[in-house]
Amino acid sequence: MRVARVRRVRGRQRVKHWLPLTRLERPSVVRSTLSPQAGRGKKQWPGHCMGFWLGTARGGECVNYNWNWGIFWDQTPDATGTYFGSLMSGLQVTILLALCAWFIAFVMGSLIGIMRTLPARWAVFVGNAYIEMFRNIPLLVQLFIWFFVVPELLPGDLGIWIKQLRNGPFIAAMLGLGFYMSSRVAAQITAGINALPKGQRMAGTAIGLTTWQTYRYILLPLAYRIIFPPLTSEFLNTIKNTAPALTIGVLELTARARSMQEFSFQVFEAFSAAAAIYLVLSAVVTIGMRILEKRLAIPGFNEGK
């Protein structure tokens, strides 16, 4: 807490001299520059189109867009529910996909991350190769490869069987996203382990623990706690990165918003609702993770950082 306060003060002092922007927001200045337009009626800035930005006006006079927030309670064309319900089912898919992919990312990432800290040279090499491979190809290309290419390369029947799986797109997205994120998780885990003082590992060896035991009882419990914040943001990235899965036909939140827009023609209601849901989701995850982090904290270690 103290650290944060000091930082804030520092930032303050620095920028005061740096950037005399503060004058801009003095109300008198603002008013005098804008006042000639005040009499020009609703159409002009800043009052101009405020209704559009607040999502209330029938666009009409200022922009050619009419808001209709009631659209969420309209029936979707498949008559299975409202648009709101459709967005919610998209949210479910997003969360489920993120969790499944995160499971893969966490497990594979931990394995590879640990491998890169082992004394064995080959392990480090394999770990590095894995990371470079999954990190240097765009997620979208990886999704296409899992979805379109991998089944073609598998022997006949297996490929056909995979292709005809009903939730094929979901599985491809889960694998693609999982492995893509695992390379980032692995890099974090390696960094976490390497951030520990060398003495920790030596102490483990000194008291007669095997390599496995050193990792299990000394290094990993500390490393995971150090990298908890970056792992949280990797998890948030996983949630965001579920959106490209719409390109291979996964009906997640963005895809639902897009299809709502196509059927109802209310573009901005659809996308701003999806955006709001993503915001809430990431806020909830952030808060949840912070609580979890406090729970897991070891008194005296890594506190106040």
Binding site: P77, R166, P169, G249, A255, S259, E262
Partner: peptide, 27 residues
């Protein structure tokens, strides 16, 4: 194809006739 009248007709027929079709949208 997503955004077409066809996918709309397909989803409507799917619901009306209770077909349980898994509709995949493509770009």
């Amino acid at each position: 194809t997503s955004g077409t009248t066809n996918i709309k007709q397909l989803t409507e027929a799917n619901a009306a006739r209770n077909l349980g079709i898994n509709v995949i949208p493509a770009k």
